[in-house]
């Protein structure tokens, strides 16, 4: 039987990944830097440095590439796939520009030959799907569009999912891209405190997001 539990129960940020202005930070430490590149080149450079073998990466739109990289780096050496069931891990993501970057590119192609491979990325939650396919996640996922990163809302939403045992772990955060402007800040949140974890509080989320 469903028993709501207190939303104030503390969960923990097990890891974080931030991609902004030509830099990638894992747990607030610089992992990769290639400033001054156009976003398309930066994402390919970062992917090559990351060293994954995932040919579909090249076919993704820029928003999906950004989120895919952030999730891959976030999860590295943090969670062992043996420690959770596919249904235990979900995603709660948000951004300001939805899939507008790809929507505009797709619209351009409709003047000549509409591109099927661009069309399939004209929804913001496709990035969540790409991450779920990559890591075989089958837990609940949601994507919200808001002008600013709504920390209070995301924290409450994720706490609700975890505290009610709908998820054991949740990747949450912000993944936004339009033209050359981009920012991804992902958090892996879980119930159990680990040596390097920090409380999943509004202050701690803001500290990482805004740093």
């Amino acid at each position: 039987m469903y028993k709501p539990v207190a939303l104030s129960e503390t969960n923990y940020i097990l890891s974080s990944c931030k991609i902004v202005e030509g830099t990638i930070l894992k747990n607030e430490s610089l992992y990769f830097e290639a400033r001054g590149l156009p976003v398309a080149d930066f994402l390919i450079e970062a992917y090559n440095r990351w060293g994954a073998q995932y040919p579909k990466f090249y076919k993704m739109d820029q928003l999906s590439k950004l989120g895919w990289l952030a999730a891959d780096i976030l999860l590295k050496d943090t969670l062992n796939p043996r420690d959770y069931k596919p249904e235990d891990l979900g995603l709660v993501l948000s951004n300001a520009n939805s899939s507008l970057d790809t929507d505009l590119k797709y619209f351009q192609t409709t003047k000549d030959f509409a591109s099927p491979s661009l069309f399939v990325y004209t929804l913001p939650n496709i990035v969540a799907g790409e991450i779920c396919i990559r890591h075989h996640f089958k837990g609940e996922n949601a994507f919200f569009v808001s002008a600013e990163f709504d920390v209070d809302f995301i924290q409450q939403y994720v706490n609700n999912l975890i505290n009610n045992n709908i998820l054991q772990f949740c990747i949450c955060g912000w993944v936004d891209l339009l033209g050359e402007d981009y920012k991804a800040v992902f958090f892996l949140v879980g119930k159990e405190k680990q040596p390097e974890s920090i409380p999943f509080t509004i202050n701690e989320i803001n500290k990482i997001y805004q740093s």
Partner: peptide
């Protein structure tokens, strides 16, 4: 080559284009 259904649509576009 491991192409998928979206690639099939792109090949149709390629023939037209």
């Amino acid at each position: 080559l491991g192409l998928d259904s979206i690639d099939a649509l792109e090949l149709i576009v390629l023939l037209q284009q």
